[in-house]
């Protein structure tokens, strides 16, 4: 492997970009495929599949090995609410390290969220610091347009792989109107998963957290590439 390739692979990881190192196990020259160069690649299909699964491996029927590098997913939760309390430990089991943003200091307390990164700030202030990107699951749970709306606009801008917002169909219809009024494109607004979570009849905060995390997992595993 040329040093340039190793540098490029490490740079992609540092910048949270997906990349696949294609190695010929018979000793041929290796190459790096990024999302920018993926379209039209002779191995486009197997590389896409590898990016979706996040697993390195030999391309079936060949002597070519794919080293898959997908940035670890981040999770941002807007709202230090009851559902968030249930969601944080579950998200951790799935390998996420959730960050919670809620300007309401009565909600965002360390007593309610021990050992969690908690930003008691408005989204406009907190979110730029979090470097939200495509590999971020974005979950809006406050029910409060003053908090959720600017947060969702930020999530659109950063093309998060998952954007979900709590609220009934009726609440969501109003949200769609507001966000469109603030200049969000119909395509962006349509990306919001609402009502949030897979439809499993969840009632308790913990059950709702399960349905949200199942939907996040689906988006991550089935949609990332």
């Amino acid at each position: 492997m040329r040093l340039e390739l190793l540098k490029a692979l490490n740079a992609a990881r540092a910048e949270r970009r997906a990349a696949v190192l294609v190695t010929d196990l018979d000793g041929g020259e290796a190459r790096l495929v990024t999302e920018a160069t993926l379209a039209g690649d002779p191995l486009e299909e197997p590389i896409r599949a590898a990016l979706r699964s996040g697993r390195s491996g030999v391309v079936e029927g060949t002597r070519t090995f794919l080293t898959v590098q997908v940035p670890p997913a981040k999770m941002v939760v807007i709202g230090a609410v009851h559902i968030s309390q249930a969601l944080v430990p579950m998200a951790r089991m799935l390998g996420y390290d959730p960050v919670i943003v809620d300007p309401r200091t009565a909600f965002a307390t360390p007593e309610r969220f021990p050992d969690v990164t908690l930003l008691a700030e408005w989204p406009d202030e907190a979110l730029p610091k979090l470097k939200v990107d495509r590999f971020t699951a974005f979950i809006a749970l406050t029910h409060d347009p003053k908090i959720d709306d600017p947060a969702l606009l930020h999530a659109f801008e950063r093309s998060c792989f998952y954007i979900g917002a709590l609220g009934s169909r009726k609440t969501h219809a109003k949200r769609v109107e507001r966000l469109t009024g603030k200049g969000a494109s119909p395509e962006a607004v349509a990306r919001i998963k609402a009502p949030i979570g897979l439809a499993i009849g969840a009632i308790s905060p913990a059950e709702i957290a399960v349905s949200i995390l199942a939907e996040v997992t689906q988006a991550w595993r089935q949609g990332i590439a």
């Binding site: 040093l3 540098k7 490490n10 990881r13 590098q69 997908v70 670890p72």
Partner: peptide
Amino acid sequence: MISTDDDILTTAEAWAKAGKGVAVATV
């Protein structure tokens, strides 16, 4: 969650840049 070998490959790069002979072994 998925990338786990961060420090390892970064270290390999640092060694190589320092002029050392370096090999990478991959399962």
